[in-house]
Nucleic acid binder design. Structure first.
Lengths: 241, 241
DNA sequence: GAGTTGATCTCGGGA
DNA sequence: TCCCGAGGTCAACTC
């Protein structure tokens, strides 16, 4: 044991007390801790759930995030989001208990068996950069409004209405108000409903007699979406990000 | 080295080749592998992104799932969902490269430095059980339809319409068609729009003159949701799961 | 703090 | 296979 904690520490088949110590130490140092072992999980909060005994991977982040992963799937089987308070104790002599408390609930992981515990302090986080998002699509439309239609003139982005913010708000070549809803992926009826709400709200806002066009811009739409658009008098323009 | 792979193996400050071997072995045995190290990530697919050098935790599951976690937040910074093909190679002498291929894109993780690699074979997955979901709320309504209103009679669940499936479809005390949309949480305008689409579709489906009531059942609604409901002639019933 | 929407959303169920 | 909506969604941004 040294006063200066190691940047990385690993325990194999640890005693629960040793694992608890490592978790306590990690809380001081801001380390990320990964545990492998056989455990049960109980959650109570916005919903409640129980996971029977199984081999799982548990990841504890210094911001309070706790993720319980089983061997399949992208989604954690159980979790607590950032802001949770974590506490590691030993129940009896051989059970490590991880208790995570949040305003909206409690998560408890009980390890019947522990195979690995690894802690790793993080010195720096790299920069992250993503392209191909909806905002990129919007920028493309603003740079070249004719992608929507010839003569389209954008006047505002995220223009507020009583039904929420319109992605791109503008006028067509004949001066009619146009609401554009952008989607980077093929969309279903929900996108048509979203646009419909904006158009209805704008028509109520502006004048009772105002004609407002609604244009859904997306790579493609489902049949039902097309139906919904048609029923609401809305238009579709295909644009692939 | 034995012919029978260990159920659990850990490497500390491993050579990249040793880590690659462990990843290859894990592919055979169906083990979950967790890596700690300094890495960069490049993703190209539905979008594209780059993560600069940083200390991260990488989790590889036998179903192809790959998750790259930084020290904050619930969401992985980068990922590949199940079904991806993974390959571990060594670039030069000191860089472990994890390459994950999917139909819709490629994810590459390059480790400049590796602190831990741990593999753990999974013998069994515990049962999982959740309560407090929307389906539980629906069952409650079916068991006691008066929670919606006195005289309400459910006739179908997930009743199909041209706009999608209605949560609970039924009749009120006076024989009018009722579409019920259930939400387990406080809801915004999107839920009102969803219900509106169903009601509109039902009115088109049944008769031009048919009156169809739409009732949103949720713990509470936002102001805008209430406005949208009112504008569409829809109703709200408060019910807490 | 609440409201609104996006997400490389993922996931499960049904046609 | 695609479509559709739920999710203990989470996360970002605005008011």
């Amino acid at each position: 044991m040294t006063d200066v904690p190691d940047a990385a520490r690993t325990l194999v088949d640890p005693m629960p007390t040793a694992a608890a110590d490592l978790l306590d130490e990690a809380r001081e140092t801001g380390a990320v801790v990964a545990l492998f072992g056989r455990c049960t999980v109980d959650y109570d909060g916005r919903a409640s759930g129980h996971l029977g005994p199984g081999d799982r991977h548990v990841l504890c982040k210094p911001d309070g995030t706790l993720l319980v992963h089983d061997p399949e799937g992208h989604q954690p089987e159980a979790w607590h989001a950032a802001g949770a308070e974590r506490e590691a104790t030993v129940d009896g002599t051989d059970t490590l208990v991880l208790r995570s408390e949040r305003d909206d609930g409690t998560l408890v992981v009980r390890f019947e068996a522990l195979a690995h515990v690894a802690a790793h302090t993080v010195e720096s986080t790299g920069e992250t950069e993503v392209t191909g998002t909806e905002e990129d699509l919007r920028q493309r439309v603003l740079d070249d409004p004719s992608l929507v239609e010839a003569g389209f003139r954008p006047l505002a982005v995220e223009r507020e209405t009583d039904a929420g913010p319109v992605d791109v708000y503008g006028e067509d070549a004949e001066g009619r108000t146009v609401a554009v809803e952008l989607k980077r992926r093929r969309v279903g009826p929900d996108a048509a409903g979203q646009l419909e709400r904006y158009v209805d709200a704008l028509e109520r806002d502006l004048h009772a007699d105002a004609e407002v066009r609604g244009i859904l811009v997306a790579p493609s739409v489902t049949d039902r979406c097309r139906q919904t658009l048609a029923a609401a008098g809305l238009e579709f323009v295909s644009l692939t990000p």
